[in-house]
């Protein structure tokens, strides 16, 4: 069995770690690292019967993830100190939100940049306040800068000059030019307070954003991790609220995200063994391509199917912008090479 399959089976608890041969761990660890999920696996198998060397590596990973999450939440606090005095409210997105809300998917989850969502009407002020508080622009290219401002769902990325940490300030969750336009105002106004005091998206919106980010925006890089987030959060929310799946349906409709949300749920079922309610539990032949893309890694952590990877990359651009604009964008980018 391939390492990526074994890795997914271990996460889904379909396979007992004790049944792995010592050498199987090489590939599993390699794949987990490639997917930035080694600490996630380490938490998943915290009490499991694994070889001594693996147990030691897992302990390192759990300790490192704890420090990294504390550092990520510190960035959230820094953003709060920059924005709150001016009355700008923001909602934490993705990894920082999961950690702030102490969700199951946060255990070991790598958090890269700090992603926050603000009202579109606040975005200029937010940018100015962050610049004053020590963040600076990363992109020096005027085309890239203009591209972000005109067409994207976020400001050009900024990095803090002392702490060297990036912040992405969003005003919605999909590019402006995307075929789908989620209701950004509803995302903001219906956000909820997490236990740590930060605002996060409400449970249905959070899953909508996760699915949109994975299936409607990106090219499925890091897809196994995003799918794991989706799987763990929907499971957690459904356990706490029997009506969750219905609410998710309604909210996905509101944002125009029914297709990606349903596909994410089916993929979570196929790969991680999610249990879905009847009306979600369908089959779609096209899912096979997504599964293939998600599992396209060999035992050395390399992408095994470059053509499929390329196809998903092109797809992500196709969804992001209308054809004429895509042509113009690619032409400009190509001339800059």
């Amino acid at each position: 069995m391939s390492a990526v399959r074994t890795f997914v089976d271990l996460l889904a608890a379909r396979r007992a770690p004790a049944t792995l041969l010592a050498r199987d761990w090489d590939g599993v660890i390699g794949v987990a690292r490639s997917e930035a999920m080694l600490a996630t696996l380490a938490y998943r198998l915290v009490d499991a019967d694994v070889p001594r060397a693996v147990a030691a590596l897992f302990a390192d990973q759990r300790a490192a993830a704890k420090v990294a999450q504390a550092q990520a939440l510190w960035e959230a606090e820094m953003a709060r100190r920059a924005l709150a005095p001016a009355g700008i409210e923001f909602v934490l997105l993705k990894g920082a939100a999961y950690a702030a809300a102490d969700m199951a998917c946060a255990a070991g989850r790598q958090i890269g940049d700090l992603d926050i969502l603000v009202l579109a009407s606040d975005i200029r002020r937010a940018e100015n306040l962050l610049l004053k508080a020590g963040w600076e622009w990363v992109k020096s290219d005027p085309y890239d800068d203009a591209y972000y401002r005109e067409h994207m769902h976020e400001l050009p990325p900024m990095i803090h000059k002392v702490r060297d940490r990036m912040i992405d300030v969003h005003h919605t969750i999909l590019p402006r030019t995307h075929r789908i336009t989620p209701d950004a105002l509803a995302l903001m106004s219906d956000a909820v307070k997490s236990g740590s005091g930060y605002a996060v998206l409400n449970p249905a919106d959070m899953a909508c954003h996760c699915a949109a980010h994975m299936l409607a925006d990106g090219d499925l890089q890091g897809g196994l991790r995003n799918l794991w987030d989706f799987h763990m959060m929907t499971r957690e929310f459904a356990l706490a609220d029997a009506g969750y799946w219905g609410k998710l349906d309604a909210r996905a409709d509101l944002h125009g995200l029914r297709a990606p949300v349903h596909r994410a749920a089916r993929l979570a079922r196929d790969l991680y063994g999610a249990e879905l309610p009847g009306e979600w539990d369908r089959q779609d032949p096209a899912d096979a391509w997504f599964r293939r893309r998600l599992l396209a890694r060999d035992d050395w952590g390399r992408v095994t199917d470059p053509l499929l990877e390329q196809a998903f990359y092109i797809r992500s651009h196709w969804l992001r912008m209308p054809p004429a604009m895509l042509a113009r964008h690619l032409w400009t980018k190509w001339r800059k090479r």
């Binding site: 050498r23 060397a53 590596l57």
Partner: peptide, 9 residues
């Protein structure tokens, strides 16, 4: 028999 901590390619 010891699993690898790090992979180089």
């Amino acid at each position: 028999a010891r699993p690898a901590d790090a992979t180089v390619r």
